[in-house]
Nucleic acid binder design. Structure first.
Lengths: 130, 130
DNA sequence: ATAGATGCAAAGGTTTTGCATAACT
DNA sequence: AGTTATGCAAAACCTTTGCATCTAT
């Protein structure tokens, strides 16, 4: 059984954190958000930032990038390839599919940048866990 | 100026770490590798594991997944979209391109799994840094 | 009134680092 | 011989958590 989930309140702090996040395109870190929010709520604590980021994520109002980041994983195959991660058992599987290098060029044109490579990762439940 | 890079030696420890990584498909964490290598080199230290993982990465012999993992970044836009990360200035840009949901189905068939979503990230140098 | 949120400080877990010693080449 | 790597332990770093207090509903 999963626990009953609490009724979320929209506190001053939570509202401001969401506002900061919605009003920037810079994909900030928790610490950057902390610095911004502190300008209006000087005594806010980092713990509150982290707690709220997790709550907002759970509410579906924001996204976390670089997640699964508690510890790095390594791959003995240094050639670019794609991965599937099972969100149930945490296993990472290699995908036998050729890399779409053509996508890199499309992005180069779209953003006027130089693309070296890309990473593509799928998430879901593996054969055993589904 | 960048510093002269050291001539790498292939020590017992380094060799074994690479061997462990090459002989598994489980995309292990540093700690898991540590446990494996310890079976043959009982007094190896975790520091050596981490140092060698970084060296092997730099030598292009292995890959790190979940990198850029020192701190998470957050995105005020919870709708799935793609990103470009500049490896020079660390900026993350949104990509205005529709999400290829058809890829999910292809992977489901290939791996006999259930795919919820995928992440696609491009790396290179942005307009300003290139 | 009361469950939920905050601030503070301490604890947790992963990764890095300084230093003396050991080992490749 | 000279430089690179190791082991150990301490430090650094980001993130989470316990607890007493406060606050939104």
């Amino acid at each position: 059984m999963s626990e009953a989930k609490p009724k979320r309140r929209m506190t001053r702090q939570r509202k401001k954190i969401l506002e900061v996040l919605k009003s920037t395109t810079c994909h900030p870190t928790a610490d950057w958000i902390y610095e911004q929010v502190k300008k209006e709520i000087p005594n806010i604590s980092l713990g509150t930032i982290y707690r709220n980021l997790n709550v907002l994520k759970e509410m579906g109002k924001i996204m976390e990038l670089n997640y699964g980041s508690s510890h790095s994983r390594f791959d003995g195959n240094p050639v670019q390839h794609y991965h599937f991660t099972c969100t149930e058992c945490d296993n990472v599987l290699d995908i036998e599919e050729s890399v779409h290098k053509d996508m890199d060029q499309r992005i180069e044109e779209e953003l006027d940048c130089e693309v070296d490579y890309h990473r593509l990762e799928f998430f879901g439940r593996c054969q055993d866990c589904k």
